[in-house]
């Protein structure tokens, strides 16, 4: 029984290092994803049709594609077209641009929730397009889109497990190392489950905090 816990103690540094990597990559990817997603949603609402089609195509492709394939092609295929990035960078950009498609959909549903009359009124009051987004649309839709955004970030955290395939030493890769070095099964995976769950709970709590802030 003592031995059972020994492994956890012995591998705590490795697992915590993996958790830290997962956390910072996901944080950067989420920020990138939100910004890029907002940009996509704004482009989606412009009048120029080909641009709208391009945005729709991007969103549908990203939503339909397993992220494993996206990351593999980006990391291992990138150098052949002159895109030589290290694994963490590909991780952040890959996850970020992937999540952007989902964030864009969330922003779009938020935009749609604003009554048309308000936007017309704002336009009449002389506000420009970007000003309308900044001062009229965003503040109102924050209440509506915060829960699905948090949900999406949680999904992002869990999907980041596939970064192990492009050699990023995040939680899942380090768990695999734990398994391979010790031939233990229970301890590594239970530890991984608990650590992921803690990270996700932290994001959920952050979400609740933000939800309270944006409500008033």
């Amino acid at each position: 029984m003592i031995q059972f816990f020994d492994l956890w103690v012995q591998y705590a540094p490795l697992m915590l290092a993996g958790l830290a990597t997962t956390a910072w990559i996901c944080a950067l990817a989420a920020m990138l994803g939100v910004v890029a997603g907002l940009a996509l949603a704004c482009l989606d609402s412009v009048a120029f049709a080909p641009l709208r089609w391009a945005v729709r195509a991007y969103i549908e492709i990203m939503r339909g594609l397993p992220i494993l394939i996206f990351l593999f092609v980006l990391y291992y295929g990138g150098p052949s077209v002159g895109l030589r990035l290290n694994a963490e960078t590909v991780g952040v950009f890959g996850l970020g641009f992937y999540a952007a498609a989902y964030f864009a959909e969330i922003f779009r549903s938020g935009f749609q929730s604003i009554p048309k009359g308000q936007i017309e009124a704002a336009r009449m009051a002389g506000l420009s397009g970007p000003q309308i987004i900044r001062h009229v649309k965003l503040p109102q839709m924050l209440v509506l889109i915060t829960p699905p955004m948090i949900n999406q970030i949680i999904i992002l955290v869990k999907e980041s497990a596939v970064l192990s395939i492009i050699t990023v030493a995040e939680l899942t890769k380090n768990t695999t190392q734990f398994v391979n070095e010790t031939y233990a099964v229970i301890q590594p995976y239970v530890a991984a489950a608990v650590l992921y769950w803690l990270l996700v709970e932290a994001v959920a709590q952050l979400g609740k905090f933000v939800e309270r802030r944006v409500r008033f």
Partner: peptide, 22 residues
């Protein structure tokens, strides 16, 4: 809900497949 939404599917699969036999 919290447990199943908060852990990666990969880990859930491995636990069901490898730990239940134990």
């Amino acid at each position: 809900q919290s447990v199943w939404r908060g852990t990666p599917i990969l880990v859930q699969l491995l636990i069901i497949y490898y730990l239940l036999p134990l």
